[in-house]
């Protein structure tokens, strides 16, 4: 496990931004790490801005917010444009290339391209694009184990969505495959 990981996950409301942040946080919890998840919503209930920050650390966590994350996971173009400039130099930017162009101007960062919606559509469930991105991120950065994410699904997803756990597991694996290549 890394000593400290600050990741910001951004997208539109409805893309499952909050849930993958919570999944990551829960996986960190069951691995015994310190973790903080913090959300930021727009006033809209649907379709607005969705943003959350997850900080995972082996030490006690001070600030629950960060303006300069180590890692950015961006699900859409407008939010990528907004947050790509904030990533620390030397950081990593995960881009959902199904919906956004990689920010070439951040040549000081590692840019990881994942066509998450395309992969999710191949899985016949476009809603799992968020899980594809998360799988890709976790496989490459290893803030937690992929198994811990999978074990957290039943805790984080509401009970009526537990029937989607198998497809989410598959989506996590597909994302991991992209970055393990």
């Amino acid at each position: 496990m890394l000593k400290r990981q600050e990741v910001k996950i951004v997208g539109m409301g409805g893309q499952g931004i909050m849930v993958i942040g919570q999944l990551l946080a829960h996986a960190a919890l069951i691995e015994g790490a310190n973790v903080v998840w913090f959300p930021c919503y727009g006033p809209e209930t649907r379709g607005g801005l969705a943003e959350c920050t997850v900080i995972i650390s082996s030490d006690e966590i001070g600030s629950p917010v960060t303006s300069t994350p180590d890692t950015l996971i961006a699900m859409t173009q407008p939010l990528l444009d907004k947050f790509a400039p904030t990533v620390k130099p030397g950081g990593v930017i995960f881009v959902n290339t199904s919906l956004a162009q990689p920010p070439k101007y951040r040549d000081d960062c590692k840019i990881v391209e994942i066509p998450a919606n395309d992969i999710a559509t191949e899985l016949s469930n476009p809603k799992t694009a968020n899980m594809v991105m998360l799988g890709g991120y976790v496989e490459l950065m290893k803030p937690v184990k992929l198994e811990s994410l999978k074990a957290s699904l039943k805790e984080v997803l509401p009970e009526h969505n537990h029937r989607f756990i198998p497809i989410n597991n598959t989506a996590l694996d597909k994302g991991a495959e992209v970055t393990s290549r």
């Binding site: 919890l29 998840w37 913090f38 959300p39």
Partner: peptide
């Protein structure tokens, strides 16, 4: 709002 809304152990 942060103390109220953040998830922590």
């Amino acid at each position: 709002a942060i103390i109220g809304q953040m998830l922590e152990a």
